[in-house]
């Protein structure tokens, strides 16, 4: 800004348009929209099943049916040993927690491009969009968690002190997934191709994160096990199984789960913010 003339634009109360807000102000603007962050996804959840006979019951019925299918296939039709005690419990925890991150990130990827109208009309911190999507997914994880707990209890497991860690683990996984959603939203706005690619990325991750089998059971090499820590999905799925039913999990998994949350959220948010002024542009 030109400061050597006495009549600077700032003196006249003007500022250059399109200049990004400083971080603290940006975060404050997001906080100011906390009602948006909560109310919009709540309403979306309510209206999601508005045209179905069973309505919101689907939020619980959906995960229940999912478990039912797995029980049928892996419990009754082909009950083979996969190196774990109770495959149904093992699978339920793995699938539910894996899908949580997948939903947050894939949904988040679309959050900006599906709101171009809103972006072009109103000025608000764009990070509001992926955050509000994530809040929605976090809310709908409630019934999923309930079903998971029922399955665990029904199998004869009793609650332990480790269950107190559920909120912390959930928070860490949510931080990680939100960071992923930020990054995905940014890149999907640049190249919509990402939206088509994501299902396959997650399919692949699904198979290499030990959702269907116990990684520890099949892999003895310590080095390879350490390499698995670089797969955040493996870390979260394994941590969940430890918290819920006490399946073995190394300290490395715990540390990696926390580290992934912080790294992903920081990097994801920074990436998203660097594109702030481009959203709603000619893309």
């Amino acid at each position: 800004m030109n400061t050597d003339t006495p009549d600077t634009p700032a003196d006249k109360g003007l500022f250059p348009v399109g200049k990004p807000l400083p971080l603290s102000e940006y975060l404050r603007e997001i906080w100011r929209r906390r009602d948006y962050l909560l109310q919009v996804p709540l309403n979306d959840l309510r209206s999601q099943n508005a045209h179905t006979l069973l309505g919101s019951v689907w939020l619980v019925l959906n995960p229940l049916l999912q478990v039912g299918v797995y029980f049928l296939v892996f419990g009754i039709i082909m009950p083979i040993d996969r190196g774990v005690d109770s495959y149904l419990v093992f699978l339920t925890i793995g699938v539910f927690t894996f899908f949580y991150s997948q939903r947050v990130i894939s949904d988040g990827a679309r959050s900006v491009v599906s709101s171009l109208g809103l972006i072009r009309t109103l000025r608000f911190p764009r990070a509001t969009l992926p955050i509000s999507n994530t809040v929605g997914q976090a809310l709908s994880f409630g019934p999923v968690l309930a079903v998971m707990v029922v399955v665990v209890l029904a199998h004869g497991n009793l609650p332990t002190w480790r269950w107190l860690l559920i909120p912390a683990l959930f928070a860490l996984q949510t931080m990680f997934s939100l960071g992923g959603a930020f990054a995905a939203a940014r890149f999907n706005h640049l190249y919509r191709d990402l939206e088509n690619l994501l299902p396959f990325v997650f399919r692949l991750l699904f198979y290499v994160s030990g959702v269907l089998y116990s990684v520890d059971h099949y892999i003895d090499d310590a080095l390879v096990r350490t390499l698995f820590l670089f797969n955040p999905m493996y870390c979260y799925v394994t941590a969940w199984r430890w918290v819920m039913v006490g399946n073995a999990a190394s300290t490395g998994v715990m540390v990696a789960s926390a580290a992934w949350a912080v790294v992903s959220l920081t990097v994801g948010f920074a990436l998203f913010r660097s594109g702030e002024s481009s959203y709603g542009g000619t893309g």
Binding site: D35, Y36, Q39, T121, F124, T128
Partner: peptide, 11 residues
């Protein structure tokens, strides 16, 4: 409602 909330109004 979404438009008003996005502009920073409380519910």
């Amino acid at each position: 409602q979404i438009g008003l909330l996005a502009q920073g109004l409380s519910q």
